Amino acid sequence: MMVRTGLVGTGYAAKKRAEAVLADGRAELVAIAGQSPERTHLLAQTYHAQAETDWQTLVSRVDLDLIIVATRNNLHGLITRKALMTGKHVVVEYPLSLEVSEARDLVQLANAQGKLLHVEHIELLSGIHQTIKEAVADIGIPCYGRYASFKGEQPAPQKWSYDAQQFGFPLIGALSRVQRLLDLFGPVETVRCSNQYWAENGQPIPLSQATAGYSAVLCSAYLTFETGLVMDLVYGKGACLWSRERVFDVHGTQGRLVVEPHGGSVISEEGQRTLTVGSRRGLFAKDMAMVLDTLEQGTPLYIAPETSITALVVAEAARRSVQSQQVINVQAI
């Protein structure tokens, strides 16, 4: 069965998705829609697909089986809903929605329609995640950790990922960080969070006034897991930050695990053991192949949409903590 596919988006993830579809002989990229007509036509020409005027027209086409949603975050829920209602399977980049209630409704809609809804979390397929997952057992019971990622950009780019309304609350827009932690350590019990946006002139922007673009953001969440583990999750990007780094550092009863993009180590009483981190290449293609396996053979995917919603709930707890300046119980959401 040839899976006839429509793609919404023209950015980096959309291009990787287009390449993944073309690389698998079981799918055909039929049409593309994006925010910019120029970029849409260029991408369609590059990948030998039809260019549609807008996403509404694309998802309404009767000749498509699957819609891939790889556009700005605030449109994910709306496009996914329309695609499901018109009888399409859907693959959507995280987050499924910026709102927990809408995300839950979409899972129910997919089940009612009998259609596949896959929320992409390729970070779980990466070599670095597999390295962490295998090595974390060597440090005993995890007690405290810090997972920090910084992406300094001078100047900050003027695009949707630096817009509070389109990207969403930082840990919702960057949901992969939360999902990685849940996959490794299980449920989160409580969240305490602080968040700061900065304008282009370097002045801070209160969360209540962050309704448009910003030049930098720093979000820091303190997560308490049901196991007793406490984790500092820090996400920052933009003009106020002058480094590009990603560090995963966990202390346990029998040692410490430190992993960065190019390597890592386990430190214990026996000394230090060097870890080799696997490649991050080919993850979109791997994810796409798994989707097609599911459509053809019913093979379970590596993540269910309900699992992504669990991460979304934790990120929403962080947002509510910033608003209320209180510790939020995740089970209350």
Score class of each variant (00 low, 15 high):
1 M>Y: 13
4 R>G: 01
6 G>K: 04
8 V>Y: 06
12 Y>T: 13
14 A>K: 04
15 K>H: 09
15 K>L: 07
17 R>Q: 09
19 E>C: 09
20 A>G: 06
21 V>S: 04
28 E>T: 07
32 I>Y: 03
33 A>K: 06
34 G>K: 00
42 L>Q: 14
43 L>Q: 09
50 Q>E: 08
51 A>Y: 00
56 Q>V: 05
57 T>C: 01
57 T>L: 00
58 L>A: 04
60 S>C: 05
62 V>H: 15
63 D>P: 07
65 D>W: 01
80 T>Y: 00
80 T>M: 01
82 K>D: 08
82 K>P: 01
83 A>M: 02
84 L>S: 01
86 T>M: 03
87 G>H: 05
89 H>L: 02
90 V>Q: 09
90 V>K: 09
91 V>L: 10
94 Y>T: 14
94 Y>D: 11
98 L>T: 09
98 L>M: 01
99 E>C: 03
100 V>Y: 04
101 S>E: 15
105 D>P: 05
109 L>F: 02
110 A>L: 01
110 A>K: 00
111 N>L: 11
111 N>A: 15
114 G>A: 00
118 H>L: 04
119 V>F: 02
120 E>Y: 10
121 H>I: 08
126 S>N: 07
128 I>F: 13
133 K>T: 03
137 A>Q: 14
137 A>N: 13
143 C>M: 14
144 Y>S: 14
152 G>L: 00
155 P>W: 01
157 P>W: 04
157 P>L: 02
159 K>Q: 13
166 Q>V: 12
167 F>E: 15
168 G>I: 00
170 P>C: 03
173 G>N: 08
178 V>C: 00
178 V>T: 05
180 R>E: 11
188 V>K: 01
191 V>I: 02
195 N>V: 05
195 N>D: 11
196 Q>S: 12
201 N>G: 04
207 L>Y: 14
208 S>V: 13
211 T>S: 07
211 T>R: 08
212 A>C: 12
213 G>K: 15
214 Y>N: 12
214 Y>F: 15
215 S>C: 05
218 L>S: 10
220 S>V: 14
222 Y>M: 14
223 L>N: 08
224 T>E: 10
232 D>W: 13
233 L>Y: 11
236 G>L: 02
236 G>W: 02
237 K>L: 05
239 A>E: 13
241 L>Y: 04
242 W>G: 14
244 R>W: 12
245 E>Q: 13
248 F>R: 02
248 F>G: 10
252 G>W: 01
254 Q>S: 04
254 Q>F: 00
254 Q>L: 04
257 L>E: 04
258 V>A: 08
260 E>M: 08
263 G>I: 09
264 G>W: 06
267 I>C: 11
269 E>N: 11
269 E>Y: 03
269 E>G: 15
270 E>N: 15
270 E>L: 14
272 Q>E: 12
274 T>L: 09
275 L>T: 05
275 L>E: 04
279 S>H: 11
285 A>D: 10
287 D>G: 10
287 D>Y: 05
287 D>L: 07
289 A>R: 12
289 A>G: 11
290 M>C: 10
291 V>R: 08
293 D>Q: 12
294 T>N: 15
296 E>Y: 05
296 E>N: 11
297 Q>N: 12
303 I>L: 12
304 A>Y: 08
305 P>L: 00
308 S>H: 15
310 T>Y: 10
316 E>M: 07
317 A>G: 11
317 A>E: 02
320 R>Y: 01
322 V>M: 06
324 S>H: 03
327 V>H: 11
329 N>F: 12
330 V>G: 08
332 A>G: 09
333 I>F: 06
